[in-house]
């Protein structure tokens, strides 16, 4: 097992370049990065074919550590850059990596439109319910009543459910996992990349430093246990009564639809344009 991990590290990380990384001890981001690398390895994709694009925040630093074509864009805009890359070179596997504030606050508009448009992109969103890098301000997924550096008296807004938002916006594939359920996360990311069309994988994660510390769950293990105890598999949730699910969230695949892919459709546009121009 250790040998397997070492092999993956040597194959995929820019280990001689930018380490040590910027994340705090116990951060869930490393688990998501591990899941992403394992998924890519299992899919057998060439490193040259992969573009990993991120936004801004702790999650935004992830691309610098891996040996793909990597892009660290502006805050909230990863999907817009990814859209240009995918349209210019559809053969590339384009994966974006965002945080909860990145994807659903400043980048919220791009997120819902990317879901509607249906390019073959994979959006991995690490949801730790807080702005970590900037010092613990409340994000669109900070729960009502929680504390943050900009919600010192308790948060009075209501949280987005990112995966459900993606389903409503029309994403072809939507899944949610957690950094506690690491094997499931591997599978969901793999399925997301494999799926043609716009895929969203929300990874619930822990930020004990900026979120936990202000909300009486100060260590990563307690936060992991919280994720374990509040996650319900989608199949199981279907059989449960709504009030039993009140403080829970579902994990697994939430949507898997067949929709026309943008680049395929655009090729038809080109064919129509050319045949009309000839007439």
């Amino acid at each position: 097992m250790t040998k397997e991990v070492t092999k993956l590290i040597h194959k995929y990380l820019r280990h001689d370049k930018k380490f040590p990384h910027v994340w705090c001890p116990g951060c869930g981001n490393g688990i998501v990065l591990g899941a992403l690398i394992r998924a890519i390895d299992r899919l057998g994709l060439e490193k040259d074919e992969i573009v990993l694009a991120s936004g801004i925040g702790c999650s935004g630093r992830m691309p610098v550590y891996v040996d793909f074509n990597t892009l660290h864009t502006t805050h909230g805009r990863a999907l817009t850059f990814a859209t240009g890359i995918k349209l210019a070179k559809p053969s590339l596997t384009v994966i974006t990596l965002m945080g909860d504030g990145d994807a659903t606050a400043i980048g919220g508009n791009h997120f819902i439109h990317a879901a509607r448009r249906n390019l073959d992109l994979t959006a991995i969103i690490i949801n730790n319910q807080i702005y970590g890098m900037t010092g613990g301000q409340h994000s669109p997924t900070t729960p009502y009543g929680c504390y943050a550096t900009t919600a010192t008296y308790g948060h009075i807004e209501h949280a987005f459910s990112i995966a459900e938002l993606a389903v409503t916006a029309g994403a072809a594939f939507v899944a949610r996992g957690t950094v506690y359920h690491a094997r499931l996360l591997d599978e969901l990311i793999e399925a997301g990349i494999r799926k043609p069309g716009f895929s969203v994988v929300e990874a619930m994660s822990n930020c004990h430093v900026q979120f936990g510390r202000r909300n009486q769950i100060e260590d990563p293990v307690t936060m992991m246990k919280w994720l374990r105890d509040h996650a319900v598999a989608t199949e199981k949730a279907r059989k449960m009564k709504p009030d039993a699910l009140e403080d829970k969230f579902t994990i697994g695949v939430l949507a898997d639809l067949e929709k026309p892919i943008y680049t395929d459709e655009y090729q038809k546009v080109r064919d129509r344009a050319k045949s009309l121009a000839r007439q």
Partner: peptide, 15 residues
């Protein structure tokens, strides 16, 4: 904002 992002992305991919 998105238009400019897409323009940069396409240019990075060589177009």
């Amino acid at each position: 904002i998105a238009s400019m992002g897409a323009v940069i992305g396409a240019s990075l991919a060589g177009i």
